[in-house]
Write a protein that binds this DNA or RNA. Structure first.
Lengths: 127, 127
DNA sequence: TAACTGTTCTATTTCGCCTAGTACACCCTT
DNA sequence: AAGGGTGTACTAGGCGAAATAGAACAGTTA
């Protein structure tokens, strides 16, 4: 259900968060559904429970999941995850668009880049 | 001439590279112009010469500057810096556009974001 | 020669990430 | 009440990247 890349430069707990968010957005994980326990998931992934705990805590602070002591962690409203992801994505994009502008790109070039991103290629949706 | 943010998460040597590249693109630093020596710049910025050296070496490997032992470091062709920055900027943008697409943004929304980035605002060009 | 330059090297510190282990409080089922 | 699950908190340590500190060597220039 979750695959971690131990070689990646991005921390394990962030990889986890990203994949769980995606699972929520894809509808695999539904509202109020219980997430794997800290200990179980750590055992399955072969990593330390503290790392799972860190990811869960971070996601709870972002409103993606909520936790109940003694019971477990549960996914919050999927719309929360969606709006969060859209918000973060747009914020990053705006910053990068400014960079591109200052790098000398014209509006026309950037519009072309947008179109290219929506141009179906062979590899798309195979990930 | 160069300002470092010691609190930033991005390494000092990368902050330096970014700012020097910008200075080249703005025409402040011209082709074949000599850069500050490793020791002088380190003294002025209050950091270690090795950090400057790392930045210079990295920039040389990227073709932005060239170094001559015993003489100093000099800016290479400004077009090298420009094409590099454009290349890097576009690569980052393409990746983020895909993210945005998968986050549920429509092409129309992204086109609007591009236009917004080119919309003159008060703070612009004051940096 | 003297004073500058780049370059290389080792050692040390700092910090974030991650692991390891332990302990405690809570909830639920039996 | 008891036991096993849960989240939570804490200390300790390893590890690697970033940065510092200091020294040494090599080339250039006045």
């Amino acid at each position: 259900m979750i695959k971690l890349d131990l070689q990646s430069k991005t921390p394990l707990y962030l990889q986890m968060e990203q994949q769980i968010i995606d699972l929520i957005l894809m509808g695999v994980l539904k509202e109020n559904e219980q997430l794997p326990s800290v200990r179980n998931l750590a055992r399955d992934l072969g990593i330390n429970p503290n790392t799972i705990q860190k990811a869960y805590q971070d996601m709870e602070s972002r409103g993606i999941i909520y936790s109940v002591v003694g019971r477990g962690n549960f996914v919050a409203s999927p719309s929360a995850a969606e709006s969060l992801k859209r918000r973060e994505s747009m914020a990053a994009l705006e910053k990068l668009l400014q960079d591109a502008r200052h790098a000398g790109f014209s509006a026309q070039e950037l519009h072309q880049a947008v179109d290219a991103a929506f141009q179906p290629r062979k590899e798309d949706d195979l990930l």
